[in-house]
């Protein structure tokens, strides 16, 4: 098992090189001159040339990339073109904010999705199933920015119960976590339902029932455990996505996370900041995927046997 984990972590290195290379070249090819962007609106030609020299943007792209990677190897992610702040410090400052929000959001999502998904599957075409599935459909279809604004108008403006934005105390987590969580909940609900439906039709479930195992135990011990693999995969993917930052939700709730940071950086062609963000995203996603794979082993002993 530990050998497997090490192997997976080593695989991360070529992935990182590939991703940074791609992003670097896409950024350099995208329209807009980086030096002009740094200089800002209304800058004079002289200023722009000075900046181009200062940041080494007059060098060929491959040389710039090489220099970046060399510095990266020595643990230096560079400084933002825009704010001159250290990239690592900036991302390390924003990431915990995103991670905390992602954690509560996925918790909201799972807390809603698992019970509804299971009940929907065990009582297919019942009232609960129908209402649950319509709600899930609505949840998927509702845009985050709309839901977020509606929550703000209701709970901050009309009722005055919650702060309208910012990251200040536990109250400020409630609305963003609900906004993000409900969207994800919808997807997880549907996945749980269909996976459960497949499992409850299996022979071993019939056998369990025939043996006289109580229905609750059939669902919890025999059906759910077997149905969880695709559900865990989806939860992992959703969680990874949340850790990459939710730009719209962060914008509405003035949340100082990585999503806004990344989008702003891309817009202003702040290459070191974008690359720093991409590296963080790559590592996060790979680690989450690895964790999900490890989780499989605990859910299904057959998979554990394959990890070598």
């Amino acid at each position: 098992m530990s050998k497997y984990i090490v192997k997976r972590l080593i695989m991360l290195i070529p992935v990182l090189i590939g991703v940074t290379f791609l992003v670097y070249f896409i950024l350099s090819m995208s329209p807009g001159d980086t030096a002009t962007m740094i200089a800002g609106e209304g800058a004079e030609a002289e200023t722009i040339e000075a900046i181009r020299k200062e940041y080494g943007l007059d060098q060929p792209v491959i040389a710039q990339y090489g220099k970046y990677m060399w510095n990266l190897l020595r643990g230096d992610m560079g400084r933002s073109y825009l704010t001159k702040r250290d990239v690592f410090t900036t991302i390390a400052g924003a990431f915990p904010n995103t991670a905390k929000l992602a954690f509560w959001s996925i918790l909201v999502a799972v807390a809603i999705a698992l019970p509804i998904g299971i009940i929907s599957a065990t009582r297919q075409y019942s009232m609960v199933d129908n209402v649950g599935m319509v709600a899930a459909l609505l949840g998927v279809a509702t845009p985050n920015f709309w839901l977020g604004l509606m929550l703000i108008i209701l709970f901050s403006l009309k009722l005055g119960w919650l702060p309208s934005g910012g990251m200040n105390g536990w109250q400020s987590y409630i609305m963003p976590a609900i906004t993000l969580g409900t969207g994800d909940a919808a997807l997880i609900t549907r996945m749980t339902r269909s996976s459960m439906l497949e499992v409850v039709r299996q022979d071993y479930i019939r056998t369990a029932r025939a043996k006289g195992v109580p229905e609750k135990a059939v669902i919890r011990k025999h059906a759910l455990k077997n149905a969880l693999i695709p559900v865990v995969t989806v939860i992992g993917l959703q969680f990874g996505g949340l850790l990459g930052g939710a730009t719209l939700t962060e914008t509405i709730f003035a949340w100082p996370g990585v999503g806004r940071l990344l989008v702003d950086s891309i817009k202003s062609k702040d290459t070191p900041m974008v690359l720093g963000g991409v590296i963080m995203l790559t590592i996060t996603f790979s680690v989450i995927n690895l964790l999900v794979d490890i989780l499989y082993a605990f859910i299904d002993p057959r998979i554990k046997a394959q990890y070598r």
Partner: peptide, 18 residues
């Protein structure tokens, strides 16, 4: 000075007195 990028959210924060 708080950064509240969404203009309507900024005015709501003003209305609530935040």
């Amino acid at each position: 000075c708080r950064v509240i990028p969404e203009a309507s959210a900024r005015v709501i924060a003003l209305e609530t007195g935040e």
